[in-house]
Design a protein around this nucleic acid. Structure first.
Length: 427
RNA sequence: GGCCCCAUCGUCUAACGGUUAGGACAUCGCCUUCUCAAGGCGGUAAUCAGAGUUCGAUUCUCUGUGGGGUCACCA
């Protein structure tokens, strides 16, 4: 009989969630899902000094955004004080704990070196120097992390403990507690840290760590974010990189988790997000792009032009905010020299623009599509020494920008009347 | 400082002791193009160092170096 897998994510509510903390949650979640197990959320709020109000809620919101839903909890340790007290008394009774003032201390049975197996790191050990009669319950009545998390993991039948590598050196404390209680410890899966921008220190606020919900606001897809995070310190063993949530659950393996710390790369995150965007139904893409556009700019014809220029929904707002789409809505103003192309003379430009107007007039309003306009203008442009002699002034007349989408696309979006009007104005 | 952990392109990573050390992101070049974006094709780029084991080390061992973690009535 195999045991039912139970994992947990046990943050302390002392700030916002960032990529480092959520990756621990993700791996615990993936492992639970993969094994049809249970994923528990437990808030470790035993330090009232450091607690930040609203933090627990923020953590839950972050997990919900990513769809890392918990099957049990949230448990709050601050609401479980009697339980820790009960286990404390049990230890006193067996001679493994003793009061120290208003606090309760653990009586270390034996200062020795511990060796244990880690699912990621393999053989690990830590020496007796890590052991002393540590505090189990503080004088304010709250348990310490060392004690509370072990009691809870026992009470909640946790089988796999995913945790950061900072806990390796205090593991002898945990193991000696388990020993005193005659309880077999759970499996440990220690995860390497995620490094900050400088690539050395652990990811932290001052080191560029972002509040997870900022990624939400910037319009990253939850599945893409999870995909990215999973790949940060883990690999599927082949060269695939884009995974749906379900695929991730299927292929995830603890054995393939990396031992060394990894660094966030927003470039890669953006790429993965774009790959996920490309798989979305057309309607959904359209809806999201339009929703992120200012009310007076919500023209469905803009969708393809915008889509190939973004990697996340928030980029739509950036694009619009930077004024790069303004020319679609109002006639551009630009110095007339901009119409010139590689030493051409003004008369030639005027002639070319006039010819352009003439051929465009021949296209009916209902037929004024990118393809038709392209066909008409290209035929014309091909007769010139360089296509740019026609295409550049036309594009400039329509957009007023040095860099913009091609003139055919713009023409269709503007429509026949506006297109011709702008060409005339340029002349 | 003691103890513990880690070490392949700039970044994320692959390689049962035998590969021209592979892929992806980024970057660069070319194609496509009036420009931008997108797309296609290609290039540059890595085994921290030194010993040892071996016919043969990215891979195993040791030492060094570098980086990280931890030494609380914080988690």
């Amino acid at each position: 009989m195999t045991e039912k897998v139970v994992t947990r994510f046990a943050p302390s509510p002392t700030g916002f969630m960032h990529a480092g903390s959520v990756r621990t949650a993700l791996y615990a979640w993936l492992w639970a899902k993969k094994n049809n197990g249970t994923f528990i959320l437990r808030i470790e709020d035993t330090d009232k000094e450091r607690e930040v109000s609203g933090s627990a809620l923020h953590i839950m919101k972050s997990l919900q955004w990513l769809g890392l839903n918990w099957d049990e909890g949230p448990y709050f340790q601050s609401e479980r004080l009697p339980i820790y007290k009960k286990w404390g008394e049990k230890l006193i009774k067996t001679g493994h704990a003793y009061p120290d003032g208003n606090a309760l201390r653990f009586k270390i049975p034996e200062k020795k070196r511990y060796h244990w197996q880690d699912l990621v790191y393999g053989d690990l050990s830590a020496g007796p120097e890590a052991l002393d009669d540590f505090i189990l319950i503080k004088s304010d009545g709250y348990p310490t992390y060392n004690f509370a998390h072990i009691v809870d993991d026992i009470e909640m039948s946790v089988t796999h403990v995913m945790r950061g590598e900072e806990f390796i050196s205090s593991t002898p404390k945990f193991l000696s507690l388990y020993e005193a209680l005659h309880i077999t410890p759970p499996h440990f899966a220690t995860l390497p840290v995620i490094l900050g921008r400088n690539g050395k220190k652990k990811l932290s606020k001052r080191d560029g760590a972002k509040d997870l919900l900022e990624y939400h606001e910037e319009g990253y897809l939850p599945d893409a974010f999870i995909n990215f995070l999973a790949l940060l310190g883990w690999n599927p063993g082949d060269e695939r990189e884009i995974f749906t949530r379900e695929e991730l659950v299927r292929v995830f393996e603890l054995e393939k988790i990396q031992k060394s710390g990894a660094r966030m790369s927003e470039d890669k995150l953006n790429w993965i997000n774009k790959e996920h965007l490309k798989k979305l139904p057309k309607e959904e893409i359209k809806k999201n792009i339009l929703e992120n556009l200012p009310k007076d700019m919500q023209n469905p014809k803009l969708v393809p032009v915008i889509f190939e220029r973004i990697s996340k929904w928030g980029d739509v707002r950036v694009l619009a905010g930077a004024g790069e789409l303004d020319f679609f809505f109002k006639s551009p103003v630009f110095p007339k020299e901009k119409l010139l192309y590689k030493g051409m003379r003004a008369e030639q430009i005027i002639t070319n623009l006039k010819t352009a107007i003439r051929v465009l007039q021949e296209i009916s309003e209902s037929n004024f599509t990118t393809e038709k306009v392209k066909e008409a203008l290209m035929t014309l442009a091909d007769k010139l020494p360089s296509r740019g002699e026609l295409l550049h002034p036309v594009r400039m007349a329509l957009s007023g920008l040095d860099q913009s989408p091609d003139p055919f696309t713009i023409a269709e979006i503007l429509g026949k009347n506006e297109t011709i009007e702008r060409l005339q104005k340029a002349i």
